[in-house]
Design a protein around this nucleic acid. Structure first.
Lengths: 205, 205, 205, 205
DNA sequence: CATGAATGAGAGTTCATTCAT
DNA sequence: GATGAATGAACTCTCATTCAT
C-alpha cells in the first residue's frame, strides 16, 4: 500500500498549493488531476470531491496540532512561557504564507455543511487547549482571575479574525503585534471586570 | 421611473432572502429570476451578476449605518450610554436572523475581489466610528486609557468573529453576552497593559 | 414629415459610424438606440433590423454614385481623362477611412441574403458604368481592343480586392498605386491577348 | 489515441459541411454537437470555439497546399505548363462546391482578429508561390517582363474576387474562363506598361 | 485496475422583439 | 405616438461524474 499512500500524499500536497492559490471554490477536480498527473478515474479512486480533499488536509493539520497539544500537556514549563510560545506560533502563522490556505478553509466552512462542521470542531478544540493553558496559569497564580473558557474564546476570536483580515489585506505587522499583545495582557490580567474590582496591579507585563 | 424602482427593490429584498438561505455561492441569477418573477433578460436589465446584487445590498446596509453614525456624531449623551446602545444593537444583530445574510457577505468577501474590497471598507468604517466613540469616552474621563484605534479594532474583531460563529452554529445566548460584556469592559477599562501599570481601579463597571 | 426625415438621417449617420467601428455583426439594435438617443420602440418605428439600416446606407451611397454616373454620361471630356478621374476617386476611397464601412458591407453581403443581393447589384452597376467608359475610349480610338465588359469586370475585381485587403491590413500606398496603375494600363492597352497578337505598341501611357 | 483522432477528424469533416452550408457566423457549437453526435462537453474537449475549428480547417487546407507547393519547387517542367496547371486547379476550385467553404472563411476573416491574421497569411503565401512561378518563367524567357510580386498580387486579387463572387451567385462558366484567361495572358505578357513600351509581340499565346 | 473520452445538467449572458402604459 | 420594461429563445462554456476499453 505504500504506492497508494504516496499518491494520497501527493494529492494532498499539490492540492494544498492549489487551494492556497485559488481558494476552495476556485479549484476543480480537473485542476487537481493536472497538478497530480493523475487521470480522472485515478483521482476519483482516492477522493470523490474537493471537499473530501480539503477535509483530509484539515485532518492532517489537526493531527499535527494534536501532537503539539499532547506535548503541551506534558510540558513542565510555566504557563506564561507556554503562552508566549503559543502566541508566537500564532503570530508566525498569521504572517506566514501558509495562512493563505486559511482562506480556502474559510470558504470551505462557509459554503459546505462538512466545512461548517470542521470549522466548529477546530474552534472547539482550540478553545479547550487554550483554556487548559489559562487554568494552568491561574493555578500557578501568575494569570488573573476569570472564566478560562470565556477568555480563551475571546482570544481565539481575535486571532481567527486577524487571520481572516490578513487574508484580505496585508496589515502592517505592528497592528498584528498590538492585537497579539492585548490578547496576551488580557490572559495575564484576567477578565477586565475582575481586574478592576480587585484593583489588582501587582503583576508585571 | 416608479415601476423600475419597484422592480429594483423587489430584486433586492427577494435576493437578500435567498442569500440568507443559501449563501452567496448558492444563489444563481436563475434563482433570482424565479424568486422575482422576472425573465432572464428582465433581471439583467438591472443587475449583471449576483456580485452586483449583493454589493447593492451591502451598499444599502451601509447607507443605513451611515445615517446612524451621523446621528451618533451629533448625539449629546455620554459615551458610555452610546457604547451601551452600540453593543446592544450589535448583540441584537448577531442573534437575529438578519445576521444570516452575513454568511453570504463573508462568502462574497472570501470568493471575489469586489467582495474583498467591500469587506475591508466595512471594517475600516466601523473602526473609525467605534474609535470616535472611545475617544469621546476617554475625553469625558469615563473610559480607560489606550490607543482608541487598537481597542476599537480589537472589539470589532471579536464582534465580527461572533457574527461568523453564530452563522455556523447557534451559540447559547450566555456565551454571546459574556463576550459582549468583555468587549464593553475592555473599552471602559482601556488597554489592559496600562490598566495594570496604573493600577487604576477607581472606575465602576 | 421633416422631423421624421431628420430622425432617419440621424439614425443612418450614427449607424454608419458604428458599422465602420464594429463591423456589421458587431452592431446591435441596442447600440443604435444608444447612439441615436432613441428608445427601443422609437427605433423600431423606423427600421426593423440592422440589415434594413445598412441596406438604407448602401442605397444612399448608390444614389450618390448614380448621380455621379449620370454626370459622367453627359461629360464631354476624353475617356482617358474620365478614367483617370475614376481611378483617382477609387484610390482615394480605398485609402480613406470611409472604406472601413466597406468591411461592414462585406460582412453584410456574406452573412445575409439581402446583403448578397445588394452586393451583386453594386458589382453589376459598377461594371455597366466602367464598361461604358471603356467603350467610349475604344470608340475614341484611345483604348485598346477587347470585350469592354470583361475588362471592366477584371478591373473591378482588382479594385474590390484591394478594398478588402485594405480593410484587413494597411498596405503600403505604393502597392495600391501599382495595382491601380496596372488596371489603368490594362484598360488603355486592352485585352493582353489582342495586344500581343496585334503587336500594337503605338499608344502612350 | 486512435479514437481521439477519429473524433477530431469527424468534427472537422462535419463542420466543414456546416460552414459551407451556413457560413461561419451561421454555425454554432451546438450545431456542431448535433452534427457530430457529441455532447457539449465532448466537443469542448477538442475545440473551444467555432473559430478554433475553422482555423484547424484552414490549417489542414494549408498543409495540403504546402505539399503541393513543395512539389512545384521540385518540378522540372516549363513555367507555362506549371502555370496552366495552377490556373486549372484554381478554376476547378472556384467552380467546385468546395469553394463554398470559402464564404465561411471570408466571414471568419472579416469578423474575427484570428481570421484576419489567417487570411493575410494565406494571401502572402500564395503571392510568394505564384511570384516564384512567374520569376521562373521570366528566367526561362517565356514570360514577359515586370515585377513578379506585383503581377502575382494582381492575379490573386482577381482569383480571390472570382471566388467570392462565385460564392454570392453562380456566374456563367464563360465569365470565369475569360477572367482566368486574362490572368494567364497578363502573366505571360508581363506588365502591360512594359509590353507597350517594348512593343514586344513575338510571343505566342 | 487505470484511463481518458464522453456525458449532460446548468450557469451565465445577449439580443431582437413585443406591449402595457 | 413614443417609451422603456419585460420577454424568452438561443448561445457559450464549465464541471462533476460515469463508463467502455
Amino acid at each position: 500500500m505504500s504506492k497508494s499512500d504516496d499518491t494520497r500524499a501527493r494529492i494532498l500536497s499539490r492540492s494544498a498549493r492549489l487551494f492556497a492559490d485559488k481558494g476552495f471554490r476556485g479549484v476543480t477536480m480537473q485542476d487537481i488531476c493536472e497538478a497530480t498527473n493523475l487521470s480522472r478515474g485515478g483521482l476519483y479512486r482516492y477522493y470523490k470531491s474537493t471537499s473530501e480533499i480539503i477535509s483530509a488536509l484539515i485532518e492532517s493539520e489537526q493531527e499535527i496540532a494534536d501532537i503539539k497539544a499532547a506535548a503541551m500537556y506534558e510540558d513542565q514549563r510555566r504557563a506564561d512561557d507556554l503562552l508566549d510560545e503559543f502566541l508566537e506560533s500564532q503570530k508566525k502563522f498569521i504572517t506566514s504564507d501558509v495562512a493563505t490556505l486559511e482562506v480556502a478553509i474559510s470558504q470551505f466552512a462557509l459554503t459546505t455543511p462538512e466545512g461548517k462542521q470542521a470549522q466548529l470542531m477546530r474552534m472547539d478544540r482550540s478553545v479547550v487547549r487554550l483554556a487548559y493553558l489559562i487554568r494552568k496559569g491561574q493555578a500557578e497564580g501568575i494569570f488573573g482571575k476569570g472564566d478560562a473558557d470565556t477568555i480563551a474564546y475571546h482570544s481565539l476570536l481575535v486571532i481567527a479574525g486577524l487571520r481572516e483580515q490578513q487574508a484580505l489585506t496585508r496589515n502592517p505587522e505592528s497592528v498584528i503585534d498590538e492585537q497579539i499583545r492585548i490578547v496576551h495582557d488580557m490572559i495575564v490580567c484576567g477578565d477586565p471586570k475582575l481586574t478592576i474590582l480587585s484593583g489588582d496591579g501587582n503583576r508585571t507585563v
